[in-house]
Design a protein around this nucleic acid. Structure first.
Lengths: 206, 206
DNA sequence: TGGGAAGCTGGAAGAAAATACAGTCACCCA
DNA sequence: TGGGTGACTGTATTTTCTTCCAGCTTCCCA
């Protein structure tokens, strides 16, 4: 079995490599074309093009970039720039959620702050009070840290739900934003999957 | 006065030049980097790199592309691909609206259907019933045609507002989606500025 | 009817870029 | 106390790319 490469190749990069990758990303979005070795040298103060070459080799080996041999500016990003769309999640009374990627939308993760890692399609109207409606795509930042009052993507057993996190002392509650839905008092294992950092609605006239 | 170059530089291109431009656009989005002269030759069957060079010169002269002299793959697109963000519009009781571009967000117009032409920032909560909240960015498709029941950007005198259009025979009403706001019965001049085709909320955790 | 403009061929010079080879230095780890 | 890895310097070679030159054909239009 081949080594199970991380879903986020940038996770196992060194800090320096991450800097290089960020620079390449920036050049691709701002300038429209990937940098050359010499441009990387100029940006980081390297005296030798081989310093850049080494970094690119390392990034390519880790899957963070793709390189076209022999081509000028032959650096490409492996994943088409955009956010993966994850299948519907129960936002009504929690239903089974499938972590199944439906596709990709050409939206920059940096459009949101903190950066979005994926889009999650909402099912149900339990959060309609804060303008999250059935079918909306939520931009989610992957994290396990969430403060009380924030809207989170949470997993209870095998069910994924979007709710407002409420900590009252030791008690943890998941609050809907719709009077028709009662708060869920957590006593089983709760996993915070991420923080809701944005919302996209579209594809048809509203 | 210099010739008033069109806002859409691709409008006064020859069919062949448009083909070349489309190819460059495709390479930029699919491949991540602009093509070289020889790659253009290969794609179109040219025998000489100068055929590509001539086209690039023509495209640059017409403002459809920008070229960095001496750089490999030095072709760039003039407008950063994205949607202009228009300043806040009154979505409460209609206030003065400024058609002032604040900036640009890197979002593909084709993300919405029909295609979005600009983003309009909402002020007020008159449309909260359909999940449009204060500060949201609405994706707007520029059109004067709207059917009854659609959510439109409308101009009444000098005021711009977002409401649901309601035609009852000859009477035209602009309905809020919030019980605190009364319907507006239109008797003065009404201009439909566009159709709301999407929504983006972000920039901070919700 | 003649003169641009668009759209090409063919060739070639020189700059820009990729890439190989041979090292150095610091750090972590077994 | 090595040995591997990351992060570089310095030099050199080859390939890719840009860019220029000189021409050719077709079409439109004044």
């Amino acid at each position: 079995m081949p080594s199970p490469r991380s879903v986020h190749p940038q996770d196992d990069l060194t800090p320096r490599q991450r800097e290089i990758l960020d620079f390449i990303r920036n050049r691709l979005t701002v300038g429209g074309a990937p940098p050359t070795r010499l441009e990387i040298c100029a940006a980081f103060g390297f005296a030798s093009p081989n310093a850049a070459e080494d970094h690119l080799r390392a990034l390519a080996k880790k899957g963070a970039i793709l390189m076209t041999a022999g081509a000028a500016r032959g650096i490409r990003l492996p994943a088409p720039p955009g956010l993966p769309v994850i299948g519907a999640v129960a936002a009504g009374s929690p239903l089974l959620a499938v972590e199944n990627q439906r596709g990709t939308l050409p939206i920059a993760p940096e459009l949101f702050s903190p950066r979005a890692d994926y889009l999650l399609q909402v099912r149900g109207n339990s959060m309609s009070g804060v303008g999250i409606l059935d079918g909306d795509l939520l931009a989610v930042h992957r994290t396990v840290e969430a403060r009380s009052g924030q809207i989170v993507v949470a997993r209870l057993e095998d069910e994924v739900t979007v709710k407002r996190l409420q900590r009252r002392g030791s008690r943890v509650e998941l609050m809907a934003e719709n009077p028709e839905y009662a708060p869920i008092v957590v006593n089983g294992p709760l996993v915070i999957e991420g923080l809701v950092v944005g919302l996209i609605r579209g594809g048809r006239p509203l």
